[in-house]
């Protein structure tokens, strides 16, 4: 019985196991050990060419930051449109599949661009952000958001959307909005900190 049941709920079991592992990590010494072990990496980041350019030429940092913000704006737009469509609030006259696929493509490219520019920006202020709690909350929210999109949301939407439970779709849309709101808000908070 269990061997027949388990393969059909692999994704759910994987989600529960991942949540368990994350909680175990968060409430154990492993979190503090990892935090301490990451300090040399952040010190090294400031010495890389990216770190030196970011610290020396303010104009380059500002330009990269502008690209980062534009990428975040596109990312936010893609999320708002796709989640708005899942909630049946906007673009209700356009098929779900068309909206979701177009938004996902836009999401992937803007995410890549924002990660690349984000790494460059972090190199310039690596030691500062290392000691900021809100930076780590942003990284946590970003990781959860990316994992949620690629391992939960996207696989769900690959199925026939019309046959999925509408309440599940609404839950996914609300959770997605919550997580990406947290990414944006904590990201802006980094700018106000230190």
């Amino acid at each position: 019985m269990s061997s027949r049941m388990l393969p059909s709920y692999t994704r759910s079991v994987a989600v529960i196991a991942t949540i368990g592992l994350c909680l175990g990590f968060a409430f154990s010494n492993a979190r503090l050990d990892t935090y301490s072990a990451l300090l040399p990496l952040f010190e090294w980041m400031e010495t890389t060419p990216f770190g030196v350019i970011g610290k020396t030429w303010g104009a380059v940092f500002a330009t990269v930051q502008a690209v980062h913000l534009l990428a975040m704006a596109v990312l936010g737009g893609a999320i708002l449109v796709s989640d708005g469509r899942l909630l049946s609030v906007i673009f209700t006259d356009v098929p779900q599949r068309q909206v979701q696929d177009a938004c996902h493509r836009l999401f992937v490219w803007s995410l890549l661009l924002s990660i690349i520019t984000g790494v460059f920006m972090a190199c310039g202020v690596a030691i500062k952000v290392y000691y900021l709690n809100v930076f780590w909350y942003k990284m946590l929210a970003l990781t959860v958001g990316v994992v949620f999109v690629f391992f939960v949301r996207r696989p769900l939407l690959r199925h026939d959307i019309e046959n999925l439970n509408p309440w599940v779709l609404r839950m996914v849309a609300v959770a997605s909005l919550m997580i990406w709101f947290s990414v944006a808000a904590t990201g802006r908070w980094i700018g106000f900190s230190g």
Partner: peptide, 27 residues
């Protein structure tokens, strides 16, 4: 296909609930 769909929906419900709880606690 139905089983895969049910699995994906259950996984989505679990992940979404945990995200919502985490969001409320954090903020």
């Amino acid at each position: 296909s139905n089983n895969a769909s049910k699995d994906a929906q259950l996984a989505a419900v679990i992940a979404s609930s945990v995200i919502a709880v985490g969001f409320v606690i954090y903020w």
